[in-house]
Design a protein around this nucleic acid. Structure first.
Length: 755
DNA sequence: CCCCGAAGGTTTTTT
DNA sequence: ACCTTCGGGG
């Protein structure tokens, strides 16, 4: 085959040995994805394997999408019927078709992390526990950890280890919360992310006929990024492949960075035990990076204690040494990185998309954004707050989800009083408790609401119920797009957003339109047979921003966390915020294992670079709005001296002059967007300034200034006399024509600027 | 029930 | 710096 010519011998071994258990240990940049795609293409073209019986599992949607495209290039469109996707999406699909066996409806709702956490909060509150002790994050992680280790709530309550750990942590009720949480999800007809894997295990354990069906079907199973799978995921694939034994896993222990989600390097070691006649292939030649980059990365990972024997090397040029940029502040760091990109781009004739800025936490993008904007360098941020996490999107999705599944408690809580219908929190709690005490579903209680609530609120609820009923009828008769637009209009959500002439309101309105467009696109997709709303909603919780539009033809500097950079490569990479406590993260430094995971993360960051890697750190950085001094990361010193260009004597932080924090980056961006909208007359005169949510309060006070005339819904017209900042709260003192001088908190004040 | 002033909490990474 | 929650008053 033509494509085999391009491969080196271990790569070729990986492509050609198709039967039996195989483990490919693939060093960074060693052509792992290429081997995996050619392997699949080879199965289809050489062995005539029906793509329908191949299952390829990846860790992220991005990886799945990319690999599918590459396979289609090699193997043609036959590859379309291939089962390829993330663990979560593939098994969600299987669970939907087998849901009845587990007592779930096939249109079960998928709870995302926010849904899960808010359910946990209501449970903790209802149980009368202290939410300072049972913090929703901690509880969520505990439950998630148990599920990923396949510990059911019944097991949990009988497990001496978990019990004693909880006693030790002064959280004895943890098991009880777990139990209630699982039961509530079940009653809601909902699964969280971990349930998708946990329940697949239950399904395959308790229903051997079902297991057998899929075992027969998937003759070849492949797993990418194997080092990031957890026990729950591993056991599913082990069960699936136990008949044909054609399982191939590809991974790199040095790049395992998801232990916090239950990923376990131990899986790689267990794999050898579970499959004694395992074929192990090592890909050690790096095609991606220069010698200096490979060597620098190797010298870092050497500091870790546990790793598989492996020697990553390269034939490439030695290239430039690792660069180091030192700045006095995070803002200066931004400027230096931006001007470095600007220079390299011009001198080396590179494009913006050849550059990537990587950071440990999403919040670090701020100072970079600002600097790039000032230098007119286009950029694109991956990750961060996902489109689907936005309030207005979740609100509409809440309506859509509830129309499909009226038992979904979280959607119910979200939309019951939205727009306001006079049904407050206490009424909502009464409804949920009534459902629980009478062993009825929420929907049943809603339909007989007069038995539970007094007249006025009951009227409001009845109107709500009738509305949902009309939505349900619409769903039967119309496609996803028609139904969703109908619901968006009839529910009043669209109206409310339309009436909000704030810049933010305008954006929210556009976002909802964008969601409707996405649904339209879904309906119009050729080959999309099921055009129902149900089909669209099914996987929405599993989508992330990476799946949304991906303008390949545009030229942007890439910005993302190191985690989301996994699997990608760029000619020039900047790793910013190389400071102790930030990277390695302070929260991770509790045990040695955690430090080693941070170090692997650093390894991943370095090995993304093809030609040049630059590390950058600042001596001061804003945190919680306060200027803090920082020390260079210990990781910088861990790079062997011969590979890095640096004065090893780090200076102590210099005394700072007065630093102007300026406008925060995202607000700066929003201001620019806002400005553009004003210029193009998209904002009507007399625009409303402040939103009732705290979304946009502080930086907007810049635009409201002394001397401006404003209108307040209650106090009428007035003139701004004074702007003030008191603690975290922004205030304006306004002289009203009819009410005299008032000082207003801007977080909530709905003011319009009069032109 | 809703509005809004005040104070307290947040900082990890992703499906 | 930004966001959420609490609680008093209408």
């Amino acid at each position: 085959m033509d494509y085999l010519e391009e491969l080196n011998s271990p790569q070729r071994e990986g492509v050609e040995n198709l039967d039996g258990p195989t483990m490919i240990i693939a060093g960074a940049g060693s052509g792992k994805t290429r081997v995996l795609t050619y392997r699949i293409a080879h199965l289809i073209r050489m062995k005539n394997v029906d793509p329908f019986s191949i299952l390829a599992l990846t860790f992220t949607n991005k990886a799945a999408k990319e690999m599918r495209a590459r396979i289609e290039k090699v193997a043609g469109t036959d590859a379309r019927s291939l089962w390829m996707g993330t663990f979560h999406s593939v098994f969600a699909r299987i669970l939907r078709s087998e849901a009845d066996k587990l007592g779930y409806p096939s249109n079960f709702t998928i709870y995302d992390t926010d849904d899960s956490k808010s359910l946990i909060r209501s449970i903790v509150k209802e149980m009368g526990l202290d939410d300072k002790v049972y913090k929703h994050n901690v509880v969520y992680n505990r439950i998630s950890g148990a599920k990923n280790n396949l510990i059911s709530w019944q097991n949990y309550l009988n497990n001496p280890l978990y019990i004693s750990e909880d006693e030790q942590a002064q959280k004895p009720k943890m098991g009880a919360i777990y139990k209630e949480y699982v039961q509530r999800c079940f009653r809601s007809g909902a699964m969280d992310f971990d349930d998708l894997l946990f329940n697949t295990n239950v399904l395959f354990r308790d229903h051997l006929d079902v297991l057998n069906k899929y075992q027969q079907r998937f003759r070849y199973v492949m797993i990418d990024e194997f080092q990031d799978t957890n026990i729950s995921q591993y056991l599913i694939t082990k069960r699936l492949s136990s008949v044909h034994q054609n399982i191939c896993v590809v991974g790199d222990d040095a790049q395992s960075i998801y232990a916090f989600r239950g990923a376990n390097i131990q899986n790689i070691l267990n794999f050898e035990k579970d499959y004694p006649d395992l074929r192990v292939i090592k890909l050690e030649q790096n095609y991606r990076s220069t010698q200096n980059i490979v060597n620098a990365a190797n010298s870092v990972i050497l500091k870790n204690s546990a790793q598989l024997q492996k020697n990553v090397w390269t034939d490439n040029d030695s290239g430039e040494l690792v660069h180091l940029i030192k700045s006095t502040s995070d803002n200066e760091e931004g400027r230096l990185v931006a001007s470095s990109i600007f220079e390299d781009r011009n001198n080396k004739k590179l494009q913006n998309k050849d550059f990537a800025i990587l950071y440990r936490t999403n919040s670090q993008s701020r100072s970079m954004e600002e600097a790039l904007r000032k230098m007119n360098i286009p950029y694109r941020i991956f990750g961060g707050l996902s489109f689907y996490q936005r309030k207005e999107i979740k609100d509409l999705l809440g309506y859509l989800r509830f129309t499909i599944n009226q038992n979904d408690e979280q959607s119910f809580r979200r939309i019951i009083n939205l727009p306001k219908r006079g049904i407050g929190a206490s009424s909502v709690d009464k409804i949920v408790i009534a459902a629980f005490e009478n062993d009825k579903s929420i929907w049943e209680v809603l339909q007989n609401i007069r038995n539970f609530l007094p007249g006025r609120t009951a009227n409001a609820v009845e109107n709500f119920v009738n509305q949902i009923k009309t939505f349900k009828i619409k769903i039967e008769r119309a496609d996803a797009y028609e139904t969703a637009s109908f619901i968006a209009k009839q529910s009043g959500l669209l109206r409310e957003l339309y009436d909000d002439k704030t810049i933010e309101g305008l954006n929210r309105y556009e976002n909802v339109q964008e969601l409707l467009n996405a649904i339209k696109e879904f309906v119009d997709t050729p080959g999309q047979e099921d055009k129902s709303l149900e089909a669209f909603i099914a996987d929405v919780a599993l989508l992330t921003d990476a799946d949304k539009d991906d303008p390949n033809d545009t030229d942007y500097v890439n910005m993302m966390t190191i985690h989301s950079a996994k699997g990608l490569e760029f000619r020039h990479v900047y790793v910013v915020g190389m400071e102790e406590d930030l990277f390695p993260s302070q929260m991770m430094l509790n045990s040695r294992a955690d430090l080693e995971e941070e170090r692997r993360l650093f390894y991943v960051a370095i090995t993304r670079a093809m030609e040049k890697i630059t590390l950058s750190y600042a001596l001061t950085r804003y945190r919680f709005g306060r200027l803090k001094s920082c020390e260079p990361s210990r990781f910088i010193e861990e790079i062997s001296p011969e590979f890095i260009k640096v004065d090893r004597k780090f200076n102590n932080p210099e005394p700072m002059g007065s630093l102007n924090s300026g406008v925060s980056g995202s607000n700066y961006a929003r201001n620019l967007v806002a400005q553009r909208k004003v210029e193009s007359n998209k904002v009507p005169p007399g625009k409303k300034l402040h939103t009732p949510s705290a979304d946009f309060a502080p930086s907007d006070t810049r635009k409201l200034d002394t001397g401006m005339r404003v209108e307040h819904p209650k106090f009428g017209f007035g003139e701004v006399k004074k702007m003030d900042i008191e603690g975290a709260n922004r205030k304006a003192t306004i002289e009203f024509e009819n009410f005299g001088e008032k000082t207003l908190l801007l977080t909530f004040a709905k003011l319009r600027i009069m032109d």
